[in-house]
Amino acid sequence: TFELKGKVGKVVKIAEDHYLVEVEGDKWIAYSDEKLSLGDRVMVVDVDGLKLKVKRIP
């Protein structure tokens, strides 16, 4: 999972307290300090167990 840091993915689902992002064909639970929208491109900035911390990228 640490090899996911720096990888780019996209938001595929928005849940009440987390996001579902697809990175390299796999779906992961993710969270972010900013509000994300469906389809946003994101970069993995940290890995916390099986959850990814992501940030939006242009």
Results as ranks from 00 to 15, higher is better:
Thr1Gln: 15
Thr1Phe: 15
Thr1Tyr: 15
Thr1Trp: 15
Phe2Trp: 03
Phe2Pro: 15
Glu3Arg: 01
Glu3Gln: 03
Glu3Leu: 03
Leu4Asp: 06
Leu4Ala: 02
Leu4Ser: 02
Leu4Cys: 03
Lys5Thr: 13
Lys5Asn: 12
Lys5Val: 15
Lys5Arg: 04
Lys5Ala: 09
Lys5Ser: 05
Lys5Pro: 06
Gly6Pro: 00
Gly6Asn: 02
Gly6Ile: 00
Gly6Arg: 00
Gly6Cys: 03
Gly6Val: 00
Lys7Trp: 02
Lys7Glu: 04
Lys7Ala: 07
Lys7His: 04
Lys7Val: 02
Val8Pro: 10
Val8Gln: 14
Val8Tyr: 04
Val8Leu: 06
Val8Trp: 04
Val8Gly: 04
Gly9Ala: 05
Gly9Asn: 00
Gly9Val: 03
Gly9Lys: 00
Gly9Glu: 00
Lys10Met: 12
Lys10Val: 11
Val11Leu: 11
Val11Ala: 06
Val11Arg: 00
Val11Gly: 00
Val12His: 12
Val12Glu: 10
Val12Gln: 10
Val12Tyr: 14
Val12Thr: 12
Lys13Thr: 09
Lys13Asn: 12
Lys13Phe: 13
Lys13Leu: 09
Lys13His: 05
Lys13Arg: 09
Lys13Val: 09
Lys13Ser: 09
Lys13Met: 12
Ile14Ala: 12
Ile14His: 11
Ile14Trp: 11
Ile14Thr: 12
Ala15Pro: 10
Ala15Gln: 10
Ala15Leu: 13
Glu16Gly: 12
Glu16Gln: 14
Glu16Pro: 05
Glu16Asp: 05
Glu16Leu: 08
Glu16Val: 09
Glu16His: 11
Glu16Lys: 10
Asp17Phe: 11
His18Ala: 11
His18Phe: 09
His18Met: 12
His18Ser: 13
His18Leu: 09
His18Gln: 12
Tyr19Phe: 08
Tyr19Lys: 04
Tyr19Asp: 06
Tyr19Asn: 14
Tyr19Met: 14
Leu20Glu: 05
Leu20His: 10
Leu20Gln: 08
Leu20Asn: 10
Leu20Asp: 08
Leu20Trp: 14
Val21Asp: 00
Val21Phe: 04
Val21Cys: 05
Glu22Ile: 05
Glu22Asp: 08
Glu22Leu: 08
Glu22Gly: 06
Glu22Thr: 11
Val23Met: 03
Val23Glu: 01
Val23Tyr: 00
Val23Thr: 02
Val23His: 01
Val23Asn: 01
Val23Trp: 00
Glu24Ile: 04
Glu24Asp: 04
Glu24Ala: 04
Glu24His: 02
Glu24Met: 04
Glu24Pro: 02
Gly25Lys: 07
Gly25Asp: 07
Gly25Arg: 08
Gly25Glu: 11
Gly25Leu: 09
Gly25Phe: 11
Gly25Cys: 08
Asp26Gln: 15
Asp26Val: 08
Asp26Thr: 11
Asp26Tyr: 15
Asp26Gly: 15
Lys27Glu: 05
Lys27Trp: 08
Lys27Met: 10
Lys27Pro: 04
Lys27Val: 06
Lys27Cys: 04
Lys27Asp: 10
Trp28Met: 03
Trp28Thr: 02
Trp28Ala: 02
Trp28Ser: 02
Trp28Gln: 02
Trp28Asp: 01
Ile29Arg: 15
Ile29Lys: 14
Ile29Thr: 11
Ile29Val: 09
Ile29His: 12
Ile29Met: 08
Ile29Gln: 10
Ala30Glu: 00
Ala30Tyr: 00
Ala30Leu: 01
Ala30Val: 03
Tyr31Ser: 06
Tyr31Ile: 06
Tyr31Leu: 06
Tyr31Met: 08
Ser32Gln: 14
Asp33Asn: 14
Asp33His: 14
Asp33Arg: 13
Asp33Tyr: 13
Asp33Trp: 14
Glu34Asp: 07
Glu34Met: 08
Glu34Ile: 07
Glu34Thr: 11
Lys35Arg: 11
Lys35Ala: 06
Lys35Gln: 12
Leu36Arg: 02
Leu36Trp: 02
Leu36Phe: 07
Leu36Glu: 02
Ser37Leu: 11
Ser37Phe: 07
Ser37Pro: 09
Ser37Lys: 13
Ser37Glu: 12
Leu38His: 11
Gly39Lys: 10
Gly39Tyr: 13
Gly39Ala: 11
Asp40Pro: 01
Asp40Ile: 10
Asp40Arg: 05
Asp40Ala: 11
Asp40Met: 13
Arg41Glu: 14
Arg41Lys: 06
Arg41Thr: 12
Arg41Asp: 14
Arg41Trp: 15
Val42Tyr: 01
Val42Arg: 00
Val42Asp: 00
Met43Pro: 01
Met43Arg: 03
Met43Lys: 04
Met43His: 04
Val44Gly: 01
Val44Lys: 00
Val44Ile: 05
Val44Asp: 00
Val44Glu: 00
Val44Asn: 01
Val44Ala: 02
Val45Asn: 06
Val45Lys: 04
Val45Leu: 06
Val45Gly: 05
Val45Ile: 15
Val45Asp: 14
Val45Ala: 06
Val45Thr: 09
Val45Trp: 12
Val45His: 07
Val45Gln: 07
Val45Pro: 00
Asp46Gly: 03
Asp46Ser: 03
Asp46Lys: 02
Asp46Pro: 01
Val47Pro: 03
Val47Lys: 03
Val47Met: 05
Asp48Leu: 13
Asp48Arg: 07
Asp48Gly: 04
Asp48Ser: 11
Asp48Asn: 14
Asp48Trp: 15
Asp48His: 11
Asp48Tyr: 14
Gly49Phe: 12
Gly49Ala: 13
Gly49Pro: 10
Gly49Cys: 10
Leu50Val: 11
Leu50Asn: 06
Leu50Ala: 06
Leu50Cys: 07
Leu50Trp: 15
Leu50Phe: 15
Lys51Ala: 09
Lys51Cys: 06
Lys51Phe: 10
Lys51Val: 10
Lys51Leu: 14
Leu52Asn: 01
Leu52Met: 03
Leu52Arg: 01
Lys53Met: 14
Lys53Ile: 08
Lys53Ala: 04
Lys53Tyr: 15
Lys53Gln: 08
Val54Asp: 00
Val54Phe: 02
Val54Lys: 00
Val54Gln: 00
Lys55Gly: 11
Lys55Arg: 12
Lys55Gln: 14
Arg56Gln: 05
Ile57Asn: 04
Ile57Cys: 12
Ile57Asp: 14
Ile57Glu: 14
Pro58Cys: 07
Pro58Ser: 05
Pro58Ile: 05
Pro58Ala: 06
Pro58Trp: 06
Pro58Leu: 06
